[in-house]
């Protein structure tokens, strides 16, 4: 169906010298809830290079959005417990004083949310909101900030950008608002953009426009992006690398092609097989039985074991170790090597 195609970026044969932009290790997050301690993130480790697009793929409750918020230190401090380290450009985000953190947010690292109507301020124009961010972070004059705001609206391809500068969020359509949100996030040239389901609330034709825009901006600005999605299609359209999350862990990590065409974790394989495609007409869909686990009562072993078709009923006492199949290619399953050639979604 697509007119042409570009291959996903090749596997990370990292240039030895380049230090990663972001390096996350041993990240755990838990929340105090009325029903007990919910373990949302249970040990996430990864690194991200400059200019790389990583998709966190998972179902609701898998911890993908919490991971994003943890990276930006946006989780409510009273109710959440965060451990581990998040190094951005070598600085540990969780050791910075709050004042430094405020300067980092919106400048080095910024975020695009699912629902721009809730993320934008309804009583300021788009232009004012972008200009305010620029003045605050860079101390430029108001006139200079407004000129930059106009440039940004043009960069995100908002038609008649000059007029839209003075528009309020409610005066724009959903697609325009999401473009404005992206312009706001880009206002101080962040080196890391976090996008939480940025196209889920949009119509199909608009979703594709925004995904193409994100891909283009990411390449143009050499910006690292972490994109959270539940939609395999979004990952296939955008990701250099894909991390599949389940019960607060990366269960699989690799290039988009590796993960989506040669899944090595039974959950990834199940997710791919149960995603509906037209050519499955007339036959029952493969499903993953059961439901994701309760985060307040995770099993001690593999969290996916109760639903796993390969599970043999033997109880693991700890989460299965990460199995590294090659550099940058991991599956957290004792069967990772044996899974080669299992279900693949693409032709």
């Amino acid at each position: 169906m697509p007119p042409e195609s570009i291959p996903a970026a090749a596997t990370d044969a990292a240039p030895a010298a380049a230090a990663p932009l972001l390096s996350v290790s041993g990240l755990t997050v838990s929340f105090d809830t009325p029903r007990g301690r919910a373990s949302a993130i249970n040990g996430v480790d990864f690194t991200l290079k400059r200019g790389e697009l990583l998709c966190l793929l998972g179902e609701s409750g898998s911890g993908k959005s919490v991971t994003l918020r943890a990276l930006m230190r946006l989780l409510p401090e009273r109710r959440s417990r965060v451990a581990g380290s998040v190094l951005l450009n070598g600085e540990d985000v969780y050791r910075l004083p709050e004042r430094r953190m405020e300067r980092l947010r919106g400048k080095a690292i910024s975020m695009v949310f699912q629902e721009p109507m809730l993320a934008l301020d309804p009583v300021y124009t788009i232009g004012q909101q972008i200009a305010e961010t620029i003045v605050r972070h860079e101390g430029t004059s108001a006139a200079e900030a407004e000129r930059r705001a106009l440039e940004l609206l043009e960069k995100v391809q908002i038609p008649s950008a000059k007029r839209r500068l003075h528009a309020y969020p409610h005066e724009m359509s959903g697609g325009m608002r999401q473009r404005a949100m992206i312009a706001l996030a880009l206002s101080c040239n962040p080196s890391l953009l976090l996008a939480d389901e940025p196209t889920t609330a949009l119509d199909a034709t608009v979703q594709m426009q925004i995904l193409l825009l994100l891909r283009q901006l990411q390449a143009e600005l050499d910006m690292a992006v972490i994109l959270v999605t539940h939609d395999i299609g979004v990952a296939a359209e955008t990701a250099d690398r894909v991390a599949v999350m389940y019960a607060g862990r990366f269960v699989e990590l690799g290039s988009a092609r590796q993960v989506l065409k040669d899944p090595r974790h039974p959950y990834t394989a199940g997710l791919l097989a149960s995603t509906v495609q037209g050519d499955m007409r007339g036959r029952p869909l493969d499903t993953i039985p059961g439901a994701p686990p309760d985060l307040t009562a995770l099993p001690p072993g593999c969290a996916y074991a109760p639903r796993c078709p390969y599970g043999d009923g033997s109880t693991l006492t700890a989460s299965p170790p990460e199995v590294w199949l090659e550099p940058g290619r991991m599956a957290r399953c004792v069967r990772a090597k044996a899974m080669a050639g299992a279900t693949a979604v693409a032709d």
Binding site: M1, P2, P3, E4, S5, I6, P7, A8, A204, T205, Q207, M208, Q209, L211, L212, D231, I232, G233, V234, A236, E237, A239, S255, A256, R257, L260, K261, T275, Q277, V345, A346, D347
Partner: peptide
């Protein structure tokens, strides 16, 4: 044509 590709080797290149 705005349907998402499921294959990272067959990405959509033009806005529908």
């Amino acid at each position: 044509s705005a349907r998402l590709s499921m294959d990272p080797d067959l990405r959509t290149m033009a806005v529908p």
